[in-house]
């Protein structure tokens, strides 16, 4: 029972954090047809910006200012970088974001050093919210939950219920028509890219002190985010949400299960002392995202909710 409750709570939080990161990526992809390899680097920038801003002022100002700053950096990258590369096709764009990821990595190392920085949870939220089965549940996790749900609602509202959302959705599928109607399509692209990066930045702000803020965080998070986007279906926000939740829950549940292959397949005569039988479900947890990626590409190449083939 306690395993289920804890896994559920942790899984949902991890899933929401993953979704916040991947929503920007999938938005950018559906708009420009380009997988932004530097996306996780914007997540890292968000965490570092928040650390610096929180050092001078406080966490709450950083919570607002850091994503805005990351969004501005993203917009600038689109305007002066990606846009001119765009003329040379998708491969050039892909390579551009690839290079950018390394560039941001190095810049972060030069400015903030190679070690983890002391980016802390704000004191106001640094207390155990409640106690469940003997383990404390930090208030900051509940805060992450609230921020993520708030962001999810806001994103949904903007895309589906506002005029700006309407234009963005139109520009995604019919950019020329939108242009002919008098909208500035490059500016829409720029703002969507910026907003996508800002979302990654926000994930960095609340994820950086929940996990660890160090120069390796982008490299560690990058592959998982791609898995979420591909499994969910490239370009689909709903899909990304489902995939993020699925991944978050599956990973935490797998860790919580104490069974090994021998327990499950014991009826086949698999003993716990054999190489295969000794493998525990928990040890498979980090493999799950990539297993899902491979399976999805085999069975359903366009992802859970995607509408185009890879």
């Amino acid at each position: 029972m306690e395993t289920i409750v804890f896994s559920l709570l942790n899984g949902v939080i991890y899933g929401l954090l993953l979704f916040m990161l991947s929503s920007g990526l999938t938005l950018i992809f559906s708009m420009m047809g380009v997988l932004n390899f530097a996306h996780a680097s914007f997540y890292m920038l968000g965490a570092y910006f928040a650390y610096s801003i929180a050092g001078v002022t406080n966490f709450w100002i950083a919570l607002i200012l850091a994503p805005v700053l990351v969004g501005l950096v993203g917009a600038a990258v689109e305007k002066w970088g990606l846009r001119s590369v765009h003329a040379n096709g998708h491969v050039a764009e892909l390579l551009f974001t690839f290079g950018l990821a390394y560039l941001i990595d190095e810049v972060v190392k030069i400015i903030w050093g190679r070690n983890a920085v002391d980016y802390r949870v704000p004191e106001l939220l640094d207390f155990p919210m409640f106690e469940l089965f003997g383990a404390q549940y930090p208030a900051y996790r509940v805060f992450i939950l609230l921020v993520s749900v708030g962001m999810l609602a806001a994103l949904w509202f903007i895309l589906n219920r506002t005029r700006a959302g309407l234009i963005i959705q139109a520009a995604l599928t019919h950019p020329h028509m939108v242009g002919h109607l008098g909208h500035n399509v490059p500016r829409i692209f720029m703002s969507v890219f910026g907003a996508g990066c800002a979302l990654a930045g926000l994930a960095g702000v609340i994820g950086g002190n929940y996990l660890v803020t160090d120069p390796a965080m982008a490299v560690q998070m990058g592959p998982i985010v791609f898995v979420v986007v591909v499994v969910g279906g490239l370009g689909s926000l709903t899909g990304a949400f489902l995939a993020a939740m699925l991944l978050g829950l599956m990973q935490t549940f797998a860790v919580g299960i104490d069974a090994s292959f021998a327990d499950i397949f014991g009826w086949l005569g698999l003993s716990a002392t054999s190489e295969l039988g000794g493998i525990t479900i928990a040890s498979l947890a980090p493999m799950i995202p990539f297993l899902m990626l491979v399976l999805i590409l085999m069975v359903r190449p366009r992802g859970l909710m995607g509408d185009r083939e890879l």
């Binding site: 896994s7 996990l211 560690q220 935490t252 919580g256 980090p286």
Partner: peptide, 15 residues
């Protein structure tokens, strides 16, 4: 646990 790939150890700690 796998080397260098776990981001959140909370599930392990709860165990």
């Amino acid at each position: 646990h796998p080397l260098g790939r776990v981001k959140d150890f909370t599930p392990y700690i709860q165990k």
